[in-house]
Design a protein around this nucleic acid. Structure first.
Lengths: 212, 212
DNA sequence: TGTACATCAGTGAACGCGCGTTCACTGATGTAC
DNA sequence: TGTACATCAGTGAACGCGCGTTCACTGATGTAC
C-alpha cells in the first residue's frame, strides 16, 4: 500500500488499493454472484467473498449480518432486476407483452444465474427482510399485469393463468440453466426458443386435455 | 452397548445397537434426504449424516468417497425411483400415458424433494459415475416414450415436444416445492392441479402463438 | 480556509468450532478345511 | 460340527483447515465552528 495511490481527486480511483473500499457492499454482492454461478450455493463463505473483494475477512460484517443476509440481498437485487426488465416491456404497450415478459424471465435467469438460484430457495432467505419481500411483490405484480393483457378472465381463472405462464417460463429457465435445453446458454437464443417451443407446448396442452 | 443386544438370531434386530450397522449405506442416504429436505443442500455434512445414523464419523468413508459421492448416489436413486414410477404408467397401456407420466414427475418431486433438489444440480454431482448416468438415461427414456404415445412426430419436432412436456412438469414441480402453487404440498393434489392448470396452459400457449 | 472532532469502514490478531481425513485398532461375519 | 483365518465394517483419537465472530485498533471522511 504505497502512499502514491491514496487519493488523487474527489472520485476515488476504483482500481487502486485504498483503506476505504468505496462500494464494498456492491463488490461483495458481485463476488457472491460470481462465486455462486461458478461453484454453487453450497460453496459460498463470507471469508471467500472478502478475499474476492480484496478486503479483510472482518469487513463484510459492516454490510451483512451473515451469509443469509448476503443471499437475501442478492435475491432482493434479483427481483429488482427482473422487475426492471419486465417493466420495460409493459410500458412499451406492445401486443405480445406476455410473451415478451416471459422472454424477460428466461433472459434474466440466463444472465443472472446466481440471483435466480437464490430467489426461490426458502432455505437461504430471510423473509422478514422488508427489501426482499417488497422487491418480490412488485416483480410478481408485473407478471400479473402481463397476463391481464391477454385475458379478461377474473379470479380464480386469472391466477390459474398466471401460474400456468410462470410454470412454463420457470421450467424453461431451470432446464436451460441445468443444460437440458437444446440451445446454447445465450440470451439471444431465448426468443428463438420461445418460437420453437410454443407450438409444441400447444400440442402438449391439447394432448393433456384431449386424453381425459 | 450391553452384551444382551448383540444378536439374537439370523436377522439382526434393526433397532438395537450393534457393532455392524447392517445397512449403513441406506441409512446414510435416508439421513441425507432428511437433512436436505429440512435444511437444504448447503447444510449437509458427512459427520452430521453419521450422527443421524448413530455411527462414528469415520464410518461413512466405507460407503462414500466424499460428500459429492452422497449427492451422486442420492441423485442416481432419485432417477431410479422416477423411472420406476413412470414405468408403472407406461406398462399400464392407458390412453393418457403422457399426462399420467407428468403427474408422476410432480408426485415424485413432492414426495422426494431432496432427491429432486439434487438430481439436476451439476455443481453437486459426479457425472463420471456410471450409476448416475445410467439411471438418468433410462429415466429420460420413459419421458420420450410417454411423449411418443401422443404424437407421430419425428425429429426434431419430437424433441421439441419432449422439451415442452418436461418444461411444464419441471416448472410445476419447482414452483410447488417453493410454495408458489395455490395447492397444499400433497401428492393427492397433483392430479387436481393438472386438471386445473391444463386449460390455462392451453390459453397461454394460444396467446403465445396468436400474438405473434 | 483551517482546525477539531465525531463517525464509521476496514484491519488484523485471536478464539473456538465443526469439518474432512487419516490411521492403528477391534468386533463381527463368512468361508475354507 | 468345529476351528482357523481372511475380510471388512465400524471405532475413536488425532490432525490440520477454513470458517464465523469478536474486539481493540486505525485510517479516512465529513461536518461543525
Amino acid at each position: 500500500m504505497s502512499s502514491s495511490d491514496r487519493h488523487d481527486g474527489r472520485v476515488p480511483p476504483p482500481t487502486s488499493t485504498r483503506y476505504h473500499h468505496g462500494d464494498l457492499r456492491r463488490a461483495l454482492l458481485s463476488a457472491a454472484a460470481e462465486e455462486i454461478a461458478a461453484n454453487g450455493v453450497a460453496a459460498l463463505s463470507l471469508r471467500e467473498l472478502a478475499r474476492r473483494a480484496g478486503v479483510s475477512h472482518a469487513a463484510p460484517a459492516h454490510h451483512f449480518k451473515d451469509k443469509r443476509g448476503v443471499f437475501t440481498a442478492l435475491a432482493a437485487e434479483g427481483f429488482a432486476l427482473l422487475h426492471a426488465m419486465t417493466t420495460e416491456v409493459l410500458v412499451a404497450e406492445v401486443d405480445d407483452a406476455l410473451v415478451r415478459a416471459g422472454e424477460c424471465y428466461v433472459e434474466f435467469a440466463l444472465e443472472h444465474p446466481a440471483h435466480f438460484a437464490v430467489m426461490f430457495d426458502a432455505a437461504l432467505l430471510d423473509y422478514s427482510d422488508a427489501d426482499l419481500t417488497r422487491e418480490r411483490d412488485i416483480a410478481f405484480d408485473n407478471l400479473y399485469q402481463a397476463v391481464r393483457r391477454t385475458t379478461a378472465a377474473e379470479e380464480p381463472e386469472l391466477t390459474m393463468q398466471v401460474v400456468a405462464a410462470w410454470t412454463v417460463v420457470h421450467g424453461m429457465a431451470s432446464l436451460w440453466l441445468t443444460g437440458n435445453l437444446p440451445y446454447p446458454r445465450s440470451r439471444d437464443q431465448v426468443s428463438l426458443a420461445f418460437r420453437d417451443l410454443s407450438p409444441s407446448l400447444l400440442r402438449i396442452a391439447q394432448a393433456a386435455l384431449g386424453d381425459r
